[in-house]
């Protein structure tokens, strides 16, 4: 099957710290892949390079066959808004906005009218079991609810790829399970590709496979099943 995301020979340094030392990764359409590894191994840097947030020093990232690592910031910004969704560990919701307005933000940025954006945002809140919480602000939500709002916001634009960096990192086991179960059900249903960085093996077990990053390289014990 075609690779939706592909990285070849990725290298990235921050000062004297070599975060990525030549990484090759290939991710198929609709695949859910967990990136794991010790703290400081380069797994978040890899996610940021794949998502066009960070530009690698060397190597290439392709999305649907097009090199994105050489695009300028404006073009990469458009790509992130239209084709990619993001979920982080915490602090990603705008505190002054209600849950529904937070979910509507990417639609409004993409030029959708407010009424239509709100209607779609409301649908997604319901799909994530958050009916009745639409008018709450982030600080009035539990950790698990806030993450579900973040997932709704990430999926509302129907992205081709969802990038999640430690999406359950700030949650207890039960809330983490609720968030992962819903997220996986929704992305399987829509065929969305997912790249999730996690240090938690139970979160990674929702993926189809895992890629281990160690010292800026992909662990090669089993090869990279590209």
């Amino acid at each position: 099957m075609t690779a939706v995301l592909e990285a070849r020979g990725l290298k990235k340094s921050f000062g004297r710290n070599e975060a990525l030392r030549g990484i090759d990764v290939s991710i198929r359409r609709g695949e859910i892949v967990a990136i794991m590894g010790p703290s400081g191994s380069g797994k978040s840097t890899l996610l940021h390079c794949l998502a066009g947030v960070t530009v690698p020093d060397a190597g290439i990232v392709r999305f649907n066959g097009t090199a994105i690592s050489t695009l300028d910031e404006t073009a990469r910004g458009r790509l992130r808004l239209g084709d990619f969704g993001f979920v982080f560990q915490f602090g990603q919701l705008l505190p002054e906005l209600t849950a529904i307005d937070n979910v509507a933000v990417p639609l409004l940025l993409a030029g959708e009218r407010r009424a239509a954006a709100s209607a779609r945002a409301a649908e997604w809140l319901v799909r994530l079991g958050l009916d009745g919480k639409a008018q709450r602000r982030p600080q009035e939500l539990s950790g698990g609810e806030a993450q579900r709002v973040a997932i709704a916001r990430a999926l509302v634009t129907k992205p081709a790829v969802l990038f999640a960096d430690e999406p359950t990192g700030s949650l207890d086991s039960l809330a983490a399970e609720g968030v992962m179960k819903l997220m996986i059900e929704l992305v399987r249903e829509s065929g969305t590709t997912v790249v999730v960085v996690t240090h938690d093996s139970r979160t990674a077990a929702y993926a189809d496979r895992d890629i281990i990053v160690r010292d800026g390289r992909v662990s090669v014990a089993l090869g990279e099943a590209a």
Partner: peptide
């Protein structure tokens, strides 16, 4: 091997 088992159980 452990991860494979974990995925199957999940």
């Amino acid at each position: 091997c452990h991860m494979e088992q974990m995925r199957a159980l999940t």
